[in-house]
Design a protein around this nucleic acid. Structure first.
Lengths: 241, 241
DNA sequence: ACCTGAACACCGTTCAAGT
DNA sequence: ACCTGAACACCGTTCAAGT
């Protein structure tokens, strides 16, 4: 939206800008949590009065939409993903999945917003909320031989997988989120009424997130490969296990 | 917490009660959305001034915790789930999954709260947020022959599956959530830059939620069955497809 | 052109006062 | 014992006024 001011990127308080405001909001949420974000406080971060932000952002809700968009679009500049250069749809989905996971882990306080903000259209499914990414995904799939129906089904399944795993991983990562420090002396207090939980607690507390993610992703890819016409299925899948 | 007042269940404004307040909050969110919920308005629903609620509820955050707990615990009175009477772990997981789905669909405005509220302990994974359900699940799994590690892994995978599918299904179900009616004249406005999206749009808009859910649940059950010692695997799985 | 200040309506929350 | 009223600190947002 802002055409000018592009050359002023590094300096301190010169030129308020929609981009600068959204970026500051992302950093603020990363550091202080969503519930601490206030127009006044965000303005103070930018060395400006809170009301000045309304010149560039229609309101708080729109600001949060911008935050979600900015975080999701970070994947475009992720050198590991590389939209165009991929070795087949399996490789593409794996890169996309890992790119999303890096985003979620880089912005654990923002990700619940990515997950729950009402999408622009019913077929825009978090966490892949960008039309460009959806288009790119569907293109790769149909080029690989998936039918239109199958490509749509893969997109749905892939979205559900990413959303569930990443939201749980992020929420399990502490995410204190509380405005003040809670004592939390006895979170595992009276487990006496739950003997099996008590016995399995060490197994539950272990952080298997990365392994779980890889395994479930592999299983999903195996499963959706079955939607391809027989001869076009990748060879290396559905063999190992 | 409230010992008395149990016999007064039906009538109108007799006896404010923590239970009555939380139930009213659930109904309010179902009908008006979370963002409309205010202490003052909730008080008005109960024929009382907003500040009166603070006698029974420590604050708004605690009220929301109570809302999540109440909705999750609805499954205890779901006759289709039946904690004890199940025919093996597969049947048990299927009933649990369908019970959770009924809850999500019955309270689409509450479910994002179920999904994202920070859990009491890192191993409490939404949407199964109740110690009683987690204990019950782990008991059924270990009784069925899953090792402690495997039972914990199944619990994690099952939670991720439910969270992803149900959150997406609920969020795809319109969920206007907006305080005022939005015109939304052209949500599918300029799709011209996304030709594949445009072509697949009919396939994306079709509501395949129920079918997707059943299929992914089946696939998950197939997959986790492989964690069992060979001889204890159910026969009917891993055969059809 | 861009930011500031005062102002408005509305929150959550506390607490003394009513009955 | 239980609810009400006034009050406080803090929101988001608008708009006229400053420079």
């Amino acid at each position: 939206m802002a055409e000018r001011g592009e050359q002023v990127t590094g300096s301190g308080r010169a030129g308020l800008d929609q981009r600068r405001i959204i970026d500051a909001a992302v950093r603020f949420i990363d550091e202080n949590g969503l519930r601490m974000l206030t127009m006044q406080r965000l303005g103070a971060c930018l060395g400006v009065d809170g009301m000045a932000l309304y010149r560039y952002v229609p309101g708080r809700e729109a600001l949060l939409d911008g935050v979600v968009e900015a975080v999701v679009d970070e994947m475009f500049s992720d050198p590991e993903v590389h939209l165009r250069a991929h070795a087949g749809w399996v490789d593409y989905l794996q890169r996309l999945a890992h790119g999303q996971r890096r985003i979620a882990l880089a912005h654990p306080e923002v990700f619940p917003l990515v997950a729950t903000r009402p999408p622009a259209a019913p077929w825009v499914r978090p966490p892949l909320r960008s039309l460009r990414w959806i288009e790119s995904l569907l293109e790769v799939l149909t080029d690989a031989g998936f039918s239109d129906e199958s490509a749509a089904a893969v997109y749905r399944a892939f979205s559900s997988f990413l959303l569930g795993y990443l939201l749980l991983e992020v929420s399990a990562r502490g995410v204190v989120t509380g405005p003040v420090e809670e004592p939390d002396v006895a979170p595992t207090g009276d487990l006496s009424r739950y003997p099996i939980l008590q016995r399995l607690e060490p197994h539950l507390s272990v952080d298997a997130a990365a392994g779980d993610f890889e395994q479930a992703l592999e299983a999903l890819l195996d499963r959706v490969a079955l939607l391809l016409p027989r001869r076009r299925r990748p060879a290396r899948l559905t063999e190992e296990k």
